[in-house]
Every structure is written in C-alpha cells, then in structure tokens.
C-alpha cells in the first residue's frame, strides 16, 4: 500500500481548506487499500508559499493549491487560477473537461515535474473591501489595495489604484492598521472566515478582478507514475466529483455569508457602463501579459477560443444559458503572441 503525504496552501482557519479535505476523504474512500493520503492543514508541514517547491522536489507527494500563487515561476499559472473579467466557474469546468484545459494544466505543471488535478472551482470573488465606499472608478484613485496577481495588479494600476502584494494572512492586520485602503481575498464565505467584516465597512461588487477561480492538487510526477492506472483513475474521479461539489458548496456558503455581510457592511455595485469600461481594459491587460510570456499566451488563446466556440450555442440558449459570453480579448492578437502549433 502506498502512503502519500499531502498538505495545502490553506490554514485550517480558512474555509478554502474544505475543498482539499473533501477530495482527500473521497480519494481515501475510493482507493481503499491501494493508496492512503495523509493530509495536513496548511502551515503544519511547510508554509503556503513553499508547497509548490515541496511537491516539486518530492519532499511530499501532493499539495493542494491555487495556481496563481506560482505565477512568479511562470506567468501562465495566473490564467490557470483565475481571470480578470473573463471566465465564470462553468466556463472553467467546460474548458477543463471538454475544451482541452486539463491537458494544459498538466503541460504547465509538467514543466516542473508535476501532475495536476483541478478539483475546486469557485465563481465570482467578493470584490474590494474598504472603509471608504467605492461607488465609481473615481473612488479608486490613489487607493492602496491588496490584490493578488499580475494581470489584476496591472489592471488596478491602470484604473488609478496601487497594488499592494501580501500574503492572505497579512491582509487583516494591514486593513486594521490602515497600511492598505482596501483589499480582496476570496469569496464572501472565505472572506467572512478571515474576519474582514471586523476591519472594513464597505464592499464593492462584483469582483471584476477575479471572475472565477480554480483550485486543485499538485502531484509529484514520479509518485503519480508509480500508481496503477486504476488508482490514477480513482483519483481523477475523486477530483471530478469534488470539482462539482465545490461549486455548489461555495455558492451556498457565499449566499449565507452575503446575508451576514449585508447586515454589517455597506454593499455597493459598479454600474454597467463602468463594468464595460473595465472589460475593455482587462482585455488589453490580458493581451499585454500574454505577449510577454508564450505559455501565458497559449493558455489565454485556448480559453478565448473556447469562449468563441461556445458563444453561438450559449447565446442561442439564452435566457436559459450558463452565464454570459464576455466581450473578451481579441483572439487574433493572442494567436500572434502564442507559440506556433
């Protein structure tokens, strides 16, 4: 019987860890005697930022993550994790399972000797939490805001704000001390578990900076290859099941958390015109970022091609369709920057 050690980037205090735990429980039930995954909460074995290195080097066999944390190693990890104003959760599921996304995850993580199983998807993140309400883009001018991600930072700076990068665990204190004027972290339920309602009084929706997010598990390639095809398939089944579970679970929990936030903070919403303007700028940032990194271009191209491909049927099925067809970035511009097939 094989035994794996697995950890995650999330401490037990953040609700994001529930997805990791759900996968591990399912996987252990399915694999029975063949494989036992021993799961440790984030921080117990290695700090969040080191999970990637620990799995890559084979110190541990598996690590739950949000791919965006590794964008410093390859900018392509960013669109594998989230998009500014582009994909929603269903887009990620479609793309991963039927439009070639899963292979792209394996290709990018494969450069670092890892196999990747996406097993979590959350829809729109909360948006910015501040003490001065943000009603229009004007209110963002000169604000120092914690935002994670390269594209997100560029977009914020074009909108007149300043990106401050810090680990999730530091946001609370930075907000409390006024080191930053605002911050975003995750979906409403996770934000509630992090206690942001204690240190902010306003919340601007929607979260255009992260229209949806993907989570999953990095597996050391040698450990993966050592498994029988049957065991590999069982892990894939556990991941697929958790993917669907995470979507409904998070939407339910986010709904509950929204109601709680609504009682204690002022919730505002950008108008449609503003969101359209942000969409145009987000498209430019995506093309600009993609053209600085071939892998990133390749990922975005695949994603935008999916959107184009799916658009006809999705729009035809309106109003019963699964979300919007975004007026996304120029597919030809991305194709020019992507490596030739």
């Amino acid at each position: 019987q094989d035994s794996w050690t697995m950890t995650t980037t999330w401490p037990s205090s953040l609700e994001l860890i529930e997805t990791d735990k759900h996968f591990v429980d399912l996987a252990n039930k399915l694999t029975g005697d063949e494989l036992q995954i021993e799961f440790y909460e984030g921080g117990a074995l290695v700090p969040a930022g080191e999970v990637f290195g620990a799995v890559e080097s084979g110190t541990i066999q598996a690590g739950g993550d949000w791919p965006g944390y590794w964008a410093g190693r390859d900018a392509a990890f960013s669109p594998l994790a989230t998009t500014p104003s582009l994909f929603n959760a269903v887009d990620y599921v479609n793309w991963i399972q039927q439009w070639g996304g899963a292979e792209i995850y394996d290709e990018i993580y494969g450069q670092f000797g890892m196999k990747y199983l996406p097993y979590g998807v959350t829809n729109n993140e909360s948006g910015f939490r501040t003490n001065e309400p943000i009603r229009t883009l004007e209110d963002l001018q000169g604000k120092r805001i914690r935002v994670s991600g390269l594209e997100q930072g560029k977009l914020l700076e074009q909108l007149g704000g300043n990106q401050v990068s810090m680990a999730g665990g530091e946001i609370y204190q930075a907000l409390e001390r006024g080191v930053i004027d605002g911050g975003e972290f995750s979906t409403p339920n996770v934000d509630w578990s992090a206690g942001f309602q204690q240190v902010t009084s306003a919340w601007a929706t929607p979260g255009w900076h992260q229209s949806a997010s993907v989570f999953g598990v990095m597996i050391n390639q040698q450990s993966w290859d050592a498994l029988s095809p049957e065991t590999q398939e069982k892990l894939q089944i556990a991941a697929d099941a958790t993917l669907l579970w995470s979507l409904a679970f998070t939407e339910k929990r986010a709904t509950e958390a929204y109601a709680k936030f609504d009682e204690v903070v002022e919730i505002t919403r950008y108008d449609d015109e503003t969101l359209e303007k942000i969409q145009t700028m987000a498209n430019d940032v995506i093309v600009e970022t993609a053209c600085e990194n071939e892998n990133s271009a390749k990922v975005y191209l695949s994603m935008v091609e999916y959107l184009g491909d799916y658009a006809q049927w999705r729009d035809a099925s309106a109003p019963f369709n699964l979300g919007r067809t975004p007026n996304g970035p120029d597919v030809e511009a991305l194709r020019e920057c992507a490596p030739a097939e």
Partner: peptide
C-alpha cells in the same frame, strides 16, 4: 534555473 520572481505588478 527557473528565474523565479515575486508575483504582482512589481516582480
């Protein structure tokens, strides 16, 4: 070997 940087607008 990987040219690792911090991630965000400042790298």
């Amino acid at each position: 070997a990987q040219g690792e940087t911090t991630y965000g607008a400042v790298q």
